[in-house]
Design a binder for these strands. Structure first.
Lengths: 331, 331
DNA sequence: AGCGTCGGGGCAATCGTTTTCCTGATTTTC
DNA sequence: GAAAATCAGGAAAACGATTGCCCCGACGCT
């Protein structure tokens, strides 16, 4: 103990925490002794006394995946700045495992819990009357009283369409994932509404399929074979967009001259790997994670926020919608 | 306290933990009371007494990325089974932040630390004479006494070449990442050695570039323009392989009939998105994470393992090296 | 010079759980 | 029937740090 190198345990505590009235010289002596011995206060003992653990639990309901990671990074970022640590729990879509983790986190007396997942669709709350605040990030809780931070997917779709309109496209079609998938329907509805609001209508009905490149290629084939007159495709994901790009390119269509393309997710390997580089909608997952963490901290400090918060999307323009010098409209 | 619903704190503890000699009826009564009140023992108080926290810290030196995630999942898997929780720390390649996290973890009295990163190259130990065991996963420590679990990349390269040889290819070339990158040179050396051991030599010198699809396409162009007679390409990453595949296909070469292709990483979106689907080397990152966690647990239990452990790779065959019924060798 | 005040720092209670020791009570044994 | 053995469960110390309280010495004031 640092006391050996100085005075008494109580005094040492005061010295290291800046409490009590001590002579500067004594304080310094204790600090140096602690430094020398590599002394670090035992967090367990400290939290036992204070009731705070400066720890939050993070439960990913689905496995840790492409969406949960930026969320985690964002949250970890905001929490780390507040000197808090993160307990990582991967529930793997298993309710039993999830409940087990909730109990574990409560036993560890975390100050709060962040729940994330792979889908934006609402889910049942992880527990009722939990003794600590809970914030849902990316996914939302089906209880409207719970605090959720979700991407504004409709906003994203709107931005995509408006961008295409802004570069002069009018014959726009939407290709996306499965019709039973919440995100697909929300984005499709918003895209259609945006067109309608401009007095336009889709160049073809929305094509629903899978979240894959293969479906994108297939969709391109469908569009070409029906002979629809299109000059832009808004895709529900970057993977689909990449598939569409390949399909169109191989049929001799040039992007963006003949057909402009916007994806969704702004997934680096996809937008960069695509030819040409893909304009895409970024949901700012890191920002969502950060916001969720900040709301959690607020709740821990006694200022809980209820209800759902929609986080705006951002359009990242790249070559697939670049307007060439000569106007960008095919003749 | 559960005591209110039963007897005394000491007795309650015994009842819930199966210690001491209690009447079954008393034990049951306490358990039911605990159940009813939703009582969970305070982990801080418990660890204060036992000295164990049943918690390990996981530090990713680089940001959480494509490689760290499977490692984390694997580790979390093995540790979760042992009732342990994981503290996640993202040091973001910042030594200051890293040291800060080490101190935090020590203050929380974790039972051990797992260090992971994005590169396999050896790195300086995270600390000296730490009071808890440390295991390095994927990356290795420059101190040979430290316990590290790394992928056997040479083994992976060997398997790739042997697979190509097994399907009858003889004119093989290697396309990989930057020459200054440890993984690139290790894999290239092993690939070359394997060929030499078979009395063959590379169909062209190894092409070093970037870890990107664009480089893959470019490399395909180089191979075609030099007119090298090749019937297989082993690539240092799936992204490069995908680029090579595109480049070759657009030049009219058919895969695998004309040229067989093997990638590295077995990254789902790349191997599936590639046309045809890509045969690839899987480093079994999850397995590495699991092994690291198991070794850490062993060390925690007083059976430390020193030195570096190489984890074998696995070849996952797909269409890009599929042998057609008529032999697989172009005429 | 004596008393009051203030600054510095020690003492001990406290947090919640585990565990050892110990005490009654009951049962067994001769 | 008495001594010994067994059993159930309570009392209290311990884990490590924090913190309110109190004590002691020095200084200042009248």
């Amino acid at each position: 103990m640092a006391t050996l190198a100085g005075v008494s345990t109580g005094t040492a505590s005061k010295a290291l925490n800046g409490r009590g009235t001590l002579r500067p010289e004594t304080r310094l002596r204790v600090q140096q002794a602690a430094e020398q011995l590599g002394f670090v206060a035992n967090a367990a003992a400290r939290s036992l006394h204070s009731g705070r653990t400066y720890t939050v639990g993070m439960i990913t309901t689905d496995s840790i995946g492409r969406f949960s990671i930026p969320l985690m990074i964002g949250a970890e970022d905001a929490l780390g700045a507040g000197q808090m640590s993160v307990f990582l729990c991967d529930a793997r879509d298993d309710p039993i495992r999830e409940q087990y983790y909730v109990r574990t986190l409560l036993s560890r007396k975390v100050d709060g819990i962040i729940v994330t997942g792979r889908r934006t669709q609402a889910r049942a709350p992880i527990g009722e009357d939990l003794p600590v605040p809970v914030v849902y990030a990316f996914i939302s809780s089906s209880d409207p009283q719970d605090c959720s931070v979700v991407p504004d997917e409709a906003d994203g779709a709107r931005r995509a369409i408006q961008h295409l309109l802004a570069i002069g496209r009018r014959r726009i079609v939407h290709v996306t994932g499965p019709e039973h998938h919440y995100s697909a329907t929300v984005r499709a509805a918003a895209a259609e509404e945006t067109l309608t609001a401009e007095g336009l209508e889709p160049a073809s009905r929305t094509l629903y399929g899978e979240w894959s490149e293969a479906w994108g290629r297939q969709a391109a084939g469908i569009l070409l074979s029906t002979g629809a007159d299109i000059d832009a495709v808004f895709c529900g994901s970057d993977q689909i967009a990449r598939g569409v790009a390949e399909g169109l390119r191989e049929a001799g269509r040039e992007i963006p001259r003949d057909v402009a393309l916007v994806g969704f997710d702004n997934w680096d390997v996809m937008v960069q790997g695509s030819r040409p580089a893909l304009t895409s909608i970024d949901m700012d997952l890191e920002g969502i994670g950060r916001t969720a963490a900040e709301l959690l901290l607020a709740a821990v400090n006694g200022e809980p926020v209820h209800g759902q918060r929609a986080h705006p999307c951002r359009l990242v323009p790249r070559a697939s919608t670049a307007v060439p010098a000569d106007s960008g409209r095919r003749t």
